[in-house]
Amino acid sequence: MGLRPDVPDDSSLLLKQFFYLSVILNAGPAGQYSLTDMETHDVPQQPARRNFIKKTCAVFVGAVTGLVPAISGLIVFLDPLRRKSQDGDAVLVASLSSLPADGVPRKFSVIASHTDAWNRMPHVPVGAVYLRRIGDEQVQAFNVICPHAGCFVDYDLSNKSYHCPCHNSSFALDGRIADPKSPSPRGLDELDVDLRNGNEIWVKFQNFRAGDKEKIPA
């Protein structure tokens, strides 16, 4: 409360509102109000002190009763905040022989088991990667998702670069930002690659937070 100096302290504002509400609640009816044609009556006033205690109790008990279900709902609502992001597992994505020798990237789907809140699904597409050879026995992998705002990045064969159609970020073959006017805060997200049994390309598939200079797992 009152953390920002330019904003009036809203705790005191809240208190004031409380005060004014209590003024209304403590006064009797100002006039003979009737929204329908109900009869109105004169009601004898009660001793003020006894009344005050009762009013305080009524407001307090009412507030407690109403807050319990609301708060339990709110806690459940906030549950996603305390869930940790899952670490990517290594997934077999392609075979080395399917990559062209000249280092031109190719796109592959990543098929893995996926836990979606309450459902666990084996063998569903969870994303895609660009793979390219950077040597006889070496492969580089990039997540296809643009680090700017999460669009699907295309590979532009004629320019030999990656291009994001959403806001025109462009990335060089090695994933670094090619055009300095690109809005993306960082280059394409490189993923860990493991070559197994000579021909199998295993990629540790992960998504990262968009819009950040650093590569933070999403």
Binding site: N51, K54, C57, V61, G62, T65
Partner: peptide, 17 residues
């Protein structure tokens, strides 16, 4: 006679509790 507020409100609030 009394008004709904506060006596009956208090009764109702305690009942809800």
């Amino acid at each position: 006679d009394e008004y709904f507020w506060p006596d009956q409100v208090l009764n109702d609030a305690v009942a809800c509790l």
